[in-house]
């Protein structure tokens, strides 16, 4: 079976700016795939290349084995949920959802029935007669989702789908998106700058920086075994240890990452460090430490005593938690 999406040596340059540079990527059918990266890292350009709003400067793009060279957006079996939802303001919700079917010439009764079903699927039954302006942000998001899914695309693209929603709604939508993706068995590709979102929703994550993919892997891989300082830094607030310090620990002069939750406060052994800062996170407290001038973050679970600033504490970590990185 061919890949859902296949990038071979794709570049997209805007003048001197290399939005995407010589990129290879393979997304499997039925996968929930996240493109994670800071703004300007090329992840949105990647999405627009798949949708067909951009053409690669060089390289080759395939969707389910078919080349996409010269294929306009309206001939691709791909639909997009836009960041600003892009609902048509002059149509009601049912007409919005039925738009793709109308364009394909599906009869009115049939397409309105399908739109009604799609609205039920996103838990907005009976909203068909309303106007986009009458809905909340979360509801508009669901309409945008229904409008894309009603066309039964092979690949669904989501551009920062949850960015504009508040925390509670975001967590709820994360769950629903996951359930929808499993039941519909459609390949989902979504772009986000929120690492928590990428890790919790995706089967695999690609971390972008400067038009290149720094690492592709499962959320566990990305989180526990970052390959470079950038990934360790960007995905969670990992402690990045410099080679000279790592050499004293392991004998190898390599950069290493150490997760905050791997650091524990002990009574004896380990290393002596100064507590610098505390931020209360609810379920735990993030503790800032200085180990001979090296800044470290640790996590103190709720219920354990939190050291005061300036206090000297002994810290230690499991040697296996130290992850050596191949790249700098």
């Amino acid at each position: 079976m061919p890949s859902a999406v296949l990038f071979s040596k794709i570049s997209r340059h805007f003048g001197a700016v290399r939005a995407i540079d010589d990129l290879d990527l393979e997304i499997a059918p039925g996968e929930f795939f996240a493109m994670l990266g800071p703004s300007g890292s090329g992840k949105t350009t990647c999405l627009r290349l798949i949708a067909g709003f951009e053409q690669p400067t060089s390289g080759h793009l395939e969707i389910f084995g078919e080349t996409m060279e010269g294929v306009p957006p309206y001939r691709r079996n791909v639909n997009t949920v836009f960041q600003d939802y892009a609902l048509f303001p002059h149509m009601n919700i049912a007409e919005n959802v039925a738009y793709g079917l109308m364009i394909r010439g599906v009869g009115k009764a049939e397409r309105l029935r399908a739109a009604g079903e799609a609205l039920e699927m996103v838990q907005l039954p009976g909203y068909g007669a309303r106007r986009p302006g009458q809905l909340s942000g979360g509801q508009r998001q669901r309409v945008a989702l229904a409008r894309a899914l009603v066309n039964k695309p092979k690949v669904l693209l989501l551009d920062e789908p949850l960015g504009a929603l508040d925390l509670k709604l975001r967590e709820q939508m994360q769950e629903e998106l996951k359930v929808l993706q499993r039941t519909l068995d459609i390949t989902f590709v979504f772009v986000t700058h929120d690492q928590g979102e990428a890790l919790s929703m995706a089967d695999r994550v690609a971390v972008f920086s400067d038009g290149k993919i720094m690492q592709v892997g499962t959320p566990q891989d990305i989180y526990q075994k970052p390959r470079s300082r950038f990934v360790a830094d960007f995905v969670g607030s990992s402690n990045v240890l410099p080679p000279d310090f790592v050499e004293t620990l392991t004998g190898l002069s390599l950069w290493a990452s150490l997760r905050p939750e791997a650091i524990t406060i002990t009574d004896q052994g380990g290393y002596e460090a100064q507590a610098i800062s505390q931020s209360y996170l609810g379920g735990s407290t993030r503790l800032g430490l200085s180990l001979n001038g090296l800044r470290l973050n640790a996590v103190v679970p709720a219920g354990k005593p939190v050291p005061e600033s300036g206090e000297t504490v002994r810290i230690d970590w499991d040697r296996n938690a130290l992850h050596l990185m191949e790249a700098s």
Partner: peptide, 26 residues
């Protein structure tokens, strides 16, 4: 919004259909 045009094309409408169903009414 410019993304309305992209949304229309994304949903299968060519340039003429997009003009007729999205741009003109707006």
């Amino acid at each position: 919004s410019g993304s309305l045009v992209e949304a229309s094309m994304d949903l299968g409408a060519d340039a003429f259909q997009t003009f007729r169903h999205v741009i003109l009414p707006n």
